[in-house]
Design a protein around this nucleic acid. Sequence first.
DNA 1: AGCCGCTTTTACAAACCTTTTACAAGTTCC
DNA 2: GGAACTTGTAAAAGGTTTGTAAAAGCGGCT
Lengths: 127, 127
Amino acid sequence: MGSFEEQRNQFYRDEHLSVDYRQQAAALDGQRLTLTRKEYDLLALLVQHAGEIIPREALLMRIWGYGAEIRTRTLDVHIRRLRKKLGGYADQYIETIFGIGYRFQPFHAPRFQQAPPERPALAAIAS
Amino acid sequence: MGSFEEQRNQFYRDEHLSVDYRQQAAALDGQRLTLTRKEYDLLALLVQHAGEIIPREALLMRIWGYGAEIRTRTLDVHIRRLRKKLGGYADQYIETIFGIGYRFQPFHAPRFQQAPPERPALAAIAS
DNA sequence: AGCCGCTTTTACAAACCTTTTACAAGTTCC
DNA sequence: GGAACTTGTAAAAGGTTTGTAAAAGCGGCT
């Protein structure tokens, strides 16, 4: 029954976040997240394409059914609310690809020699 | 005979609530609930699909035989009375899925996962 | 008929979700 | 730096769904 392959398509799970596509529910650190429909749809779509950039256009098309001609800010607002509900992990999980769209990244605990910083922002601020 | 499998289809039981499908009866904390027919049907249907979202449409179809074209509030009213009879556990048990339907959750809602017990030491060493 | 229990409707309030609006902040490119 | 554009954010508007109380409807029964 619960084969590996099946599990793979029903669940997402990493160190903090889990998504159950069958129950249409997500949990953060073991605590159930209460997401609205659109919020869930958005999260699920992003998570199902973890690691991939999904263009705004694609999100608006697949979740809202909007064509490219429609100009709206609703996606941004939903992203924002999703991030808020993801708490402190938000920026780690949902990445903004400027001018393109968004990308979900699975959680990875910070490694020592990771992340060649594009810019030493933190260092600058710290000093 | 009273095999495990059979039991499974005749009863529901958790910490507070039990439902006996054969006798069409339910009890809360050991006390028998007096439910009307429709109330029982509704509860039983929800409980038998514990954890799953059941759309309004499905409930109206299976319990009332109503087709999708019928607009009625009777489901809401029955849900309300059921909740009242479930007392303080009502909100824990019967969840409203806005715009979709309802879902019964076994007591102490299944956090469908906990982050697996950690072995961060090994992971850290390994990497 | 009249009562009774259950179901359904009605009508309104409350809650909820989504989208828009308006502006601030950030990014890219010149 | 500055213009042009993109994204972030807060607040409000808009529209729909659900909660609730009360009344009405409907059989069955005495």
